[in-house]
Design a binder for these strands. Structure first.
Lengths: 206, 206
DNA sequence: CCACCAAGTGGCACTAGCTGTCAAAGCGCA
DNA sequence: TGCGCTTTGACAGCTAGTGCCACTTGGTGG
């Protein structure tokens, strides 16, 4: 995750620097001027690269705005792929999320926070962000259901992963609603609390 | 929902006919030729309206493809708004979904089925569809949480609604994976089964 | 040190989704 | 029939995103 190191070929270093400059500047411009009001031409002018180069680094305008999201989920997926996955699944997934959150780059907090605030107000970003989750969900289900024999098994596993995502959504939404105070530690605490709240949520009344 | 009637002013009738022709033709063209391969110009040529008129009826290309989704959720939201919501929330939401599904237009099955199949293969549609769900979620939470006093209450309600959505996703995905055989009845049965499966999903192992 | 190869970049032209504007056409009503 | 309001079409314009090709630059072997 934090491969900041300079023991890469010069070319790769340069490319990585461009990638980061794009994500960083995009987040700044989008926050300052608004997402829709900022064109990719603006961004490319600021970073001093061609639009063509932008699209070699990110698939879309939404993509660069949600780079922090993408970082989290790809790290999570990598980590989950290394696990045994033999105990209670929901608990395993929760612990894995905790571990991944704890292992993210120190700078990741700030980027993720800004990203959440942004996508809160831009429907296109929200939808795209949900798309990431969905993709991750699908990937997790795929790695997990290899041993599942029946459709019922597959459905239950799918449902478990979906509930995991539901808890994550709730926690991160609450975090954003609180102004993201306390940073990552608060987020991790909220995640834990939310998972603990699940049994209650099944039976609670309005 | 099924306001097919001809006791509307002539103008409204014409407009409604255009709306339906657009949605219907879009679904057909997208299915036959592929979503990306079909341009809005193609669609507008076929329906014989200007592109400007298209955008007066639908907000985007994704919008017209997901008209059936939109129909379901707006009907659901309308119905939920009429309820008391004093019993166990998750169960209430489930029953409301059952009622709404049962009350949809007879033709809705076919359109929804085609829509699901489409969005299965087009990431942009999937993301947009998730966006609808999210919007609906937000609306439900808003109507429900008016009486909630504490943040914990709000979080629990949010979580309940998110779990509702999780179950719906699982059920409809399974329905699509089965080729949507049996139509709406099968879908409704799957929804019921999925909700019954929730307690199991919390503790199951991989 | 130079020459060569491949990776990466920039510039250009082009498609397609989407919006603002305004004049023309069509419906509703007296 | 004629007036007013709503809806439509045509056009111009903006921005996201892609294909193409020439050019630069880092890596590598002679």
């Amino acid at each position: 995750m934090s491969d900041d190191l300079r023991d890469l070929p010069l070319r790769e270093r340069k490319k990585l620097r461009t990638r980061r400059a794009l994500a960083e500047t995009a987040l700044r411009l989008f926050t300052e001027r608004g997402y829709d009001a900022t064109t990719l031409d603006d961004l490319c002018d600021t970073v001093e690269v061609s639009k063509r180069t932008f699209f070699r680094n990110y698939r879309s305008k939404e993509d660069v705005a949600l780079a922090a999201d993408s970082d989290l989920w790809s790290a999570y997926l990598d980590y989950v792929a290394t696990l045994k996955l033999d105990g209670p699944l929901l608990e395993t997934l929760r612990v894995a999320l905790d571990t991944t959150l704890g292992a993210m780059d120190p700078d990741w907090d700030r980027r993720f926070l800004a990203t959440r605030a942004l996508s809160e107000g831009v429907p296109a970003l929200q939808a795209h962000s949900l798309g990431y989750c969905q993709e991750t969900t699908r990937a997790i289900v795929e790695t997990v259901t290899e041993g599942a024999r029946t459709d019922v098994d597959r459905m239950r596993l799918q449902l478990t992963v979906e509930i995991f995502v539901a808890a994550w959504h709730t926690a991160s939404l609450q975090w954003t609603a609180q102004g993201s105070q306390g940073g990552r530690d608060t987020l991790m605490k909220l995640v834990e609390e939310t998972f603990a709240m699940i049994p209650d949520a099944l039976t609670c009344s309005a």
